[in-house]
């Protein structure tokens, strides 16, 4: 297997970005639903990474980003209910 330094760096970056998004979703859901934290965490972690990846424009424009987070929150809360 070949993994070079830059690849791992971009993976670390990506993980940092995705975990920040997950964190925001977690915060919103925790406030919205009265549910066990561990359960919620597992639910959030069970989704693939692509699910949390914002598009280029989502990061460029704040309104889009807010919509993006809200969309994720809605999707997960619907699944839990």
């Amino acid at each position: 297997m070949e993994l070079n330094f830059n690849e791992i760096k971009s993976l670390t970056d990506e993980a940092l970005m995705i975990s920040t998004v997950k964190m925001l979703v977690f915060k919103e859901l925790k406030d919205e639903l009265m549910i066990d934290e561990k359960e919620l965490k597992d639910k959030i972690n069970s989704k693939p990474n692509d699910f949390y990846k914002p598009e280029e424009l989502d990061i460029l424009v704040q309104d889009n980003f807010n919509d993006f987070i809200k969309k994720l929150v809605d999707l997960i809360s619907e699944e839990i209910k």
Binding site: L11, A15, I18, N45, Y52
Partner: peptide
Amino acid sequence: NFYDASLSNC
């Protein structure tokens, strides 16, 4: 916790 999960997924 989220970081661990995301990085291992990546």
